[in-house]
Amino acid sequence: MTDEFDLHAELAIGVRDAAGAWGFLRRFADRYATPIVAGDGRDEEELRKAETRLGFSLPPSLRAVYELIGKRHDLTRSQDRLLGPDQVCVDDTGQVLVFRVENQDVAQWGVPLSAVAEPDPPVVFRLRQAERTWRPFLERTSLACVEMVLSEWMLSGDTFTNDRELDDAAVAVLEKRFRRLPMPDYPCWAGPDRPTRWFDGFGTVLREDAETWLWVRAASADGITAVRRELPGVWLS
């Protein structure tokens, strides 16, 4: 979270297309985590075995993220899980290739089989224990991978983090005092009728889920203190 890295500008590039997404993930990891290196990706043999088992090729964008960061636990499975190539499967409706699951398997994310041959297909999600219907999540797999990395990074920290429940007054302050990041709104699986939104400010990155919960990660204790000052209330961490 250094001054020379403008997350807003970098993310604006990252959400444009697949090439922008992969470049953003590299730059984001350089600045916010540890650099991506060759050993962080899944190898070709693993991916070929998965495709042989499935009977079709993985979508190119899904293949690309496995090749880039498929072994990076901090960026792919701190909270929810990017499935390994040997775990990717077609769901029980026979309609969706599932590649990511919530940590208690409450929610699933996947690519519709009708779009699996597209270079960068849309991603859908569902609450597995509550419904069989899949809902739109994000319009491109590469965009869903950007979301995954942001979220897994947010929840992988054990220092300089904080979270709290939100009310209408706190949401209003958040919208006024912090800068919206150019990640498009997308459904929060825990409250699908309201979106997840991303913000930054005071040296921190913030994720707001469905106007009900706020997560914060900072580079230092000063950042957390600044957020708590701007948004007074009951913080849990």
Rank of each mutant, 00 (worst) to 15 (best):
T2Y: 07
F5W: 11
D6A: 15
L7K: 05
A12L: 08
A12S: 10
I13H: 00
V15M: 05
R16L: 13
D17W: 01
D17F: 00
W22K: 05
R26S: 05
P35Q: 02
V37S: 08
A38V: 04
G39C: 01
G41F: 00
R42H: 06
E45M: 10
E46A: 01
L47I: 07
R48M: 09
R48D: 14
K49V: 10
E51F: 06
E51C: 04
R53N: 12
G55D: 12
R63G: 07
D74G: 02
R77S: 08
S78W: 00
R81P: 02
R81I: 01
L82I: 11
L83N: 13
L83H: 11
D86P: 09
D86G: 11
V88N: 13
V88H: 08
V90M: 15
D91C: 09
D92E: 10
T93I: 13
T93V: 09
G94D: 07
Q95Y: 03
V98T: 08
F99R: 13
V101Q: 14
N103H: 06
D105W: 01
D105P: 02
V106D: 14
V106A: 14
V106Y: 13
Q108E: 15
W109H: 09
W109M: 01
G110L: 03
P112M: 11
L113T: 03
L113F: 00
L113Q: 04
S114L: 12
A117I: 06
P119R: 07
D120Q: 01
P121V: 11
V123C: 11
V124A: 06
F125D: 07
L127S: 12
Q129V: 03
A130V: 06
E131T: 14
R132G: 10
R132N: 04
R132Q: 08
R132E: 09
W134I: 08
R135N: 15
P136M: 04
F137V: 04
L138T: 09
T141P: 04
S142Y: 00
S142C: 00
C145I: 05
C145Q: 13
V146K: 02
M148L: 15
V149S: 14
S151D: 14
L155V: 07
S156I: 07
G157T: 07
D158L: 15
T161N: 14
T161H: 13
T161P: 03
D167G: 10
D167N: 12
D167R: 03
A170Y: 04
A170W: 06
V171F: 02
E175H: 08
R177P: 09
R177Y: 10
R179I: 13
R180N: 06
L181M: 13
M183L: 08
D185A: 03
Y186H: 15
Y186F: 01
C188Q: 12
P192I: 15
D193E: 14
R194M: 15
R194I: 04
P195C: 00
T196C: 12
F199Y: 12
F202S: 03
G203F: 02
R207Y: 06
A210Q: 15
A210L: 04
E211G: 14
W213A: 06
L214S: 08
V216C: 14
S220T: 08
I224D: 03
T225K: 01
A226W: 00
R229N: 07
R229Y: 02
L231G: 06
G233R: 15
V234A: 06
V234P: 02
S237T: 14
